[in-house]
């Protein structure tokens, strides 16, 4: 009896996760795929994709999404890496920094967007501070529809503030997995701090960097709430267009087509990361 229990226990323990993923990820994903290739009347067709490609916002949404990805992800990784290395150097009071850095993790992305809207809006904190300091005479319209650079900067800042801590937590966990002997051996054999980081710490941190990159990239493709809060539709992004097509245009098929594009991009990005950053089999400790 005991062996039988032992055999089924792992499956029993996995069951809640599998059920959760099936219900909330797999089924919606299949539904979205089906929706995207179903004609509005009946039968299969690629009409939805044609409508999506012909949409005036499609190329903008595509460009903006990739632009945000290219700006935000490296910025977050670098910031988080510097913060993680700082905290890991165990200076006095390093624990407090971790708590401060982690605060934004507790705030939902829409709330974060609204919070930053209060900073960047015409009568927001930024303008009033600058005016009080005498730097500007008139409020600057940071988020005006014709100020693309302003909107982009605001979104990059807000997103970095909101989600860098997630990368940080992953990287700190990864750093703590590296035995201290490796740091000491690097010191002893003549590496200064920078060369130690480049030659020893970063390569050993690769598995964590890979996880962080994958998670951040997935979220970057889905960037929506912060963009919507700060720019409305002045800055179309793929996930936002999916929402607009569904909620405003009431066309779930084209919305699904956008979702499928996001899915496709995500899969491609993950494959690239796994290829580029993956551990060679020979390196994996038996």
């Amino acid at each position: 009896m005991r062996t039988r229990t032992e055999r089924f226990l792992p499956f029993a323990l996995l069951l809640p996760t599998i059920a959760f993923l099936t219900l909330l990820i797999v089924i919606p994903m299949v539904q979205a795929l089906l929706l995207s290739v179903m004609a509005e009347s009946d039968g299969l067709s690629l009409d939805n994709f044609q409508r999506m490609f012909a949409d005036v916002n499609f190329s903008d949404a595509w460009r903006n999404t990739l632009l945000l990805l290219i700006l935000i992800v490296p910025l977050q990784i670098v910031l988080a890496l510097v913060m993680a290395l700082l905290i890991n150097s165990r200076f006095r009071g390093h624990g407090i920094f971790l708590y401060i850095y982690a605060i934004p993790l507790a705030i939902s992305d829409l709330a974060a967007g609204i919070l930053w809207l209060a900073v960047f809006t015409e009568r927001g904190y930024l303008n009033s501070t600058l005016q009080n300091a005498g730097v500007i005479d008139q409020p600057v319209l940071w988020l005006s529809f014709d100020n693309f650079a302003g909107i982009l900067s605001a979104i990059v800042i807000a997103e970095s503030w909101r989600a860098t801590a997630l990368v940080l937590v992953i990287l700190i966990a990864g750093l703590q997995l590296i035995p201290r002997d490796f740091f000491e051996a690097a010191d002893l054999f003549g590496a200064n701090r920078l060369r130690r980081t480049v030659h020893v710490v970063l390569p050993l941190l690769r598995p964590s960097l890979q996880s962080a990159l994958i998670i951040r990239t997935i979220f970057a493709f889905q960037t929506f709430a912060v963009v919507f809060a700060l720019a409305g539709r002045n800055m179309p992004v793929l996930a936002g267009e999916a929402y607009t097509w569904y909620a405003t245009n009431r066309n779930e098929h084209v919305a699904a087509a956008y979702a499928v594009v996001v899915l496709g991009l995500t899969v491609v990005a993950i494959i690239v990361y796994l290829r580029v950053l993956g551990l060679r089999e020979a390196e994996v400790q038996r």
Partner: peptide
């Protein structure tokens, strides 16, 4: 100086 560590600390990468 040079040192041999108890764990060896041979870099796996």
């Amino acid at each position: 100086i040079a040192m041999v560590f108890q764990s060896y600390a041979v870099f796996p990468h």
